[in-house]
Design a protein around this nucleic acid. Structure first.
Length: 946
RNA sequence: GCCGGUGUGGCGGAACUGGCAGACGCAGCGGAUUCAAAAUCCGCCGGGCCCUAAACCCGUGCAGGUUCGAUUCCUGUCACCGGCACCA
């Protein structure tokens, strides 16, 4: 007799597959997860709301990997639980489909990105649906949908039409600024001179306003990646290489569209305090923005009309500034070369600058040996009055501060190293307790000022602590008019153009004079033209592929949709051929989900107010809108910073209700895998290794011993797990359960296929509690076992708490414990004896439902309960059931457990003490001595100290 | 170098605000059932000492400290992971 015949109704992969696809179809047909908006039929305004968002995926051609369903399962469990607890739940899904990853895949396969992307989306959708996630698919969209990117362009135009008003510390329409300039006929800087607004040309006015727009065009030193054929944002460059692909990046000046994110630097830092985000991510953002407080000091330079301005965080060390350094790109270096002070030095200087410019960032970082040459110029230290040399060196970066420093070798390691290398003077001006000055090394940190007084200049700070010395020097600088307090940021403006095809076109055109004109909102979207040859141009200079769409590029103002009030319709114009970066669409997609089909607004105001406005327990409004945002930590300073910036612009302009987009953020941990490592550190793919004996691994070829290590999943290591395979072998419910049972959601943890069977067996046991494997009949206990009833209450309470704190692994453990306790022995006279009653099974199934929704729905239906388990309320528990009448407590003597006793839970300490001291296992350890002290922790333990 | 995080059985992990270390799962071992196997059910499962058991001792990276009591708090230290990195 075969096993199949004995237990034909066992829960197997085939059974799982059948019931999972059947229920998925039923849920879809019944719109089980459709969440209406306020004002729509079926909307229940009496319920609280919960907006739970997953980071939407890039639909790559490789399909879903096991990391995607980790976060998605977690949010699905939470959303199902919240629905059962009576919330209106917004839980949408969509596709982040523009940008480099999708485009690179298209280039690899030689198929147009539109085709590959749509195919990839279909595949991702199919895979996600197979997991049974409870998304409201009626809200689905992709960032490549013209009806979506129409609003991406609209938001860009909004930023283009705005400026940052420092007085309001907020964005304002640029029309207000323009009106004020015209009304007051203000004099503005044009070229080197100033001119009245009324006397300025169109182009001059535009250039001036471009200095204020939040989305502006300007010439910047950009990161050009020849291999990718595009420029990249600072955030996309890691150690001089592209974040995507790891290709070298060079820096070059280019006229590009930018976002004035630096205007928001302060608010982007300070508002981090308002949101419930992981500390690590907030720290990373704060460090990326890099606020530092210090002073700006202007040094007079011999023979130069303009002073040399530096930024320093240590103005208190001004007396120790013995030389100055400017970046090789600094304009003063050009002057110095032209002036040729010091004869032969001019040639050396020019040579050094050329060398430094061509030196890749990577080389700069590797060789930290200081290099530099004197400019031949001299500046005056305003504190000492001394003439100090001005050098140029590539350890000073043009992109930070003013691109120039005052060097204080005594108290800065880099300056010290440089001074030693080129024999420049070193003067100690700070005495630091615990770090005596030897002259052998720089002493860094705070202390007291020394050798810092000069009667001639009137500055004397000797003896002052660093903080006071800073204040004193700044006050002196301000009085002298040669410096001031200054806050500096590491953050640069955000480069927003890409020389790629697969992105949103900019809704802007240029006239013959090179002036830019916005496409009017009514003419949106500016649709990405179909282009057969979309490949990026691998070159040393940027060449956007869209330039190849000649008919599209060369058009008229009227054709392009420029407001006739701005430009006559017949004016010949060219379209912008750069496209927006992949980040554009993900900057605001969470808003679109609130009203994805609204054709009149980027988000319907009423929907935005309903879904995005939350209140804290105290009743005050929360700064952030989305109640829970779950995704990987790799976007900590990219997507998550950009989205905050866009949201703040929209907030300032009255388009959204909250200053922050995401109230609570959670990063799921990385799912890693195994790989094998040779003694020399080289990694060996898993399929080239065999196990001989217990935990001993050897390379198949050569037989060298290798060690099993944890590594990221990668194609080259052939340790990538495909979710489809796992679902085929065990079903979606098992997959969901396995990923949630692996460990804490936030921890990175290794995939171990062998362990999956554990949760599969749990589901089989749960099934067996309700279904007779031999007959398929429903099986229920006739009478409730009081002990099991109590455990069921505890399980309901524990799982509910654990879901709210995202502790899914322990929640599952609690369910397993209950099922183990309720499991019947193999040989049972009457299957209706033991196990759980129908009522108990119903409650268990409700708790199981968020985790394994398909099995839960099937059991719910088989047990004959009304409706769908997806609509059932979360079971109540009786708090009285959570406490025991009698508890076992540990009895310790000198902190060591010597006995265990059963006592009533509410036994008075004196009684416990008496029981303890009389205990036969305790008496020998007292050794006849009188206990000094007895500590009783009610319900837990008792400790006797002798 | 700086910042953040993590170190618990053979493995993944559990342990609420300091209170019985190792829940739950995997692997392993033993038993019941079976002609046999699978499946199922029951039991054991950190180390030492020991024929076995009781008892005892050790044990949460390492070394100290605070405490009646430390995986949990403090100091130092090592290792690994992530981020930043000539940022003035």
């Amino acid at each position: 007799m075969s096993a199949q015949n004995e237990t034909p109704f066992r829960y197997t992969a085939a059974v799982a597959e059948e019931l999972e696809t059947r229920w998925q179809a039923a849920w879809e047909a019944g719109n089980a997860y459709r969440q209406p908006n306020p004002g729509e039929p079926g909307f229940d305004g009496s319920k609280p709301k919960f907006y739970c968002l997953d980071m939407f995926p890039y639909p790559s051609g490789a399909g879903l990997h096991v990391g995607h369903p980790e976060g998605y399962t977690a949010t699905d469990i939470l959303c199902r639980y919240k629905r059962a607890k009576g919330f209106n739940v917004l839980h949408p899904m969509g596709w982040d489909a523009f940008g480099l990853p999708a485009e690179q895949y298209a280039i690899q396969t030689g198929v147009h990105p539109e085709v590959t992307t749509k195919k990839a989306i279909d595949n991702f959708r199919r895979q996600l649906k197979r997991f049974g996630f409870s998304y409201d698919w009626s809200r689905e969209f992709a960032t490549i949908d013209p009806e979506y990117y129409r609003w991406t362009q609209w938001i860009w135009l909004l930023a283009y039409g705005s400026w940052f008003d420092p007085k309001a510390n907020a964005a304002r329409p640029i029309a207000e600024l323009e009106a004020a300039l015209a009304k007051e006929d203000r004099a503005i800087a044009v070229g080197g001179a100033t001119k009245k607004w009324s006397a300025c040309t169109k182009r001059e006015r535009q250039a001036y306003l471009d200095g204020f727009r939040l989305a502006y065009i300007g010439t910047q030193t950009v990161n050009w990646c020849p291999k990718l054929g595009t420029v990249l944002a600072n955030e996309e460059v890691i150690d001089g290489r592209s974040e995507r692909g790891g290709f070298p990046v060079v820096r070059m000046p280019l006229r590009q569209w930018m976002f004035r994110i630096t205007a928001y630097a302060d608010r982007l830092i300070s508002d981090l305090a308002l949101i419930d985000w992981p500390e690590s991510t907030r720290t990373m953002q704060a460090e990326w923005i890099g606020r530092s407080e210090g002073a700006e000091i202007r040094f007079a330079v011999d023979g130069e009309s303009e002073p040399l301005t530096v930024f320093t965080t240590r103005p208190d060390t001004l007396f120790g500034a013995t030389y100055m350094v400017v970046a090789p790109e600094h304009p003063l270096v050009t002057h110095a070369i032209a002036r040729g002070e010091g004869g032969a030095d001019a040639a050396r200087l020019a040579e050094y600058v050329a060398w430094a410019k061509n030196r890749a960032d990577i080389d700069r970082q590797e060789a930290k040996k200081k290099t530099g040459v004197p400019t031949g110029l001299f500046a005056v230290n305003p504190a000492t009055g001394a003439r100090i040399p001005v050098w140029t060196a590539d350890y000073v970066l043009m992109g930070y501060g003013t691109g120039a420093i005052m060097a204080v070798p005594a108290h800065d390691e880099r300056d010290f190293e440089f001074a030693k290398a080129f024999d420049l003077p070193v003067v100690q001006v700070v005495e630091i307790a615990g770090t005596p000055w030897t002259g052998e090394a720089a002493t860094c940190g705070e202390g007291r000022a020394v050798h810092s007084a000069n009667a001639a200049t009137g500055l004397a700070i000797d003896g002052l602590a660093t903080a006071d010395a800073k204040r004193a020097v700044i006050a002196w600088l301000e009085a002298k008019g040669i410096g001031r307090l200054r806050v500096n940021y590491r953050l640069r403006d955000w480069l927003f153009s890409r020389q790629r095809y697969w992105g949103e076109p900019f809704p802007v055109v240029f006239d013959a004079e090179g002036c830019h004109w916005p496409v009017s909102n009514a003419a949106l979207p500016v649709v990405l033209p179909a282009l057969a040859d979309y490949k990026p141009v691998e070159s040393d200079t940027p060449q956007p592929p869209l330039a190849k769409a000649r008919e599209w590029v060369h058009t008229t103002a009227g054709e392009a949709g420029v407001d006739p009030a701005l430009l006559p319709p017949g004016t010949p114009v060219v379209r912008e051929t750069n496209t927006m970066p992949g980040w554009a669409g993900s900057c605001w997609y969470y808003l679109r989900y609130c009203s994805p089909h609204d054709s009149g607004h980027f988000v319907a105001p009423e929907a935005e107010r309903y879904w995005m406005v939350s209140r804290k327990k105290s009743g005050e409004p929360h700064a952030g809108g989305v109640d829970l945002y779950v995704g990987g930590a790799e976007h900590a300073v990219l997507h998550l910073l950009y989205a905050r910036f866009w949201h703040k612009v929209l907030f300032d302009l009255g388009q959204v209700s909250t200053p922050e987009p995401m109230g609570k953020l959670f990063h799921q941990g990385l799912i890693t895998s195994h790989a094998f490592q040779r003694e020399d550190g080289g990694l060996v793919p898993v399929d080239e290794v065999e196990e001989r004996g217990e935990g001993q691994f050897f390379e198949k070829a050569g037989g060298a011993k290798v060690a099993k290590i944890i590594a990221k999943m990668s194609k080259s290591l052939r340790n990538v797990v495909n979710p489809d395979d796992v679902i085929a072998e065990y079903g979606a419910d098992t997959f969901r359960l396995y990923e949630m049972y692996m460990g804490p959601l936030e921890a990175s943890k290794p995939w171990n296929t062998r362990d999956i069977v554990g949760v599969f067996r749990f589901l089989q046991r749960a099934w067996r509690l309700a279904v007779d494997e031999r007959t398929g009949a429903v099986l229920c206990a006739a009478h409730a076992d009081p002990k099991l009833e109590k455990q069921l209450h505890r399980m309901v309470a524990k799982v509910g708490q654990d879901i709210e704190s995202l502790g899914f692994n322990t929640a599952i453990a609690a369910m397993i414990e209950l099922v183990n306790a309720a499991t019947r022995p193999t040989e049972m006279a009457d299957p209706a004896q033991g196990g759980l009653t129908r009522d108990q099974l119903g409650r268990f199934v409700c708790v199981l439902a968020p985790f394994a929704p398909h099995m839960a729905e099937e059991l719910w239906s088989r047990l004959g309960f009304e409706g769908s388990v997806t609509a059932a309320a979360w079971p109540a528990y009786d708090p009285a059931m959570l406490v025991d009448d009698e508890v076992e407590i540990a009895v310790q003597v000198q902190g060591k457990v010597r006995a265990r006793i059963m006592v009533p839970a509410k036994a008075p300490p004196a009684e416990v003490e008496a029981l303890t001291l009389a205990h036969p296992d305790v008496i020998p350890h007292l050794a006849g001595k009188q206990p000094k002290k007895v500590i009783v922790v009610p319900g837990r333990m008792v400790n006797v100290v002798v």
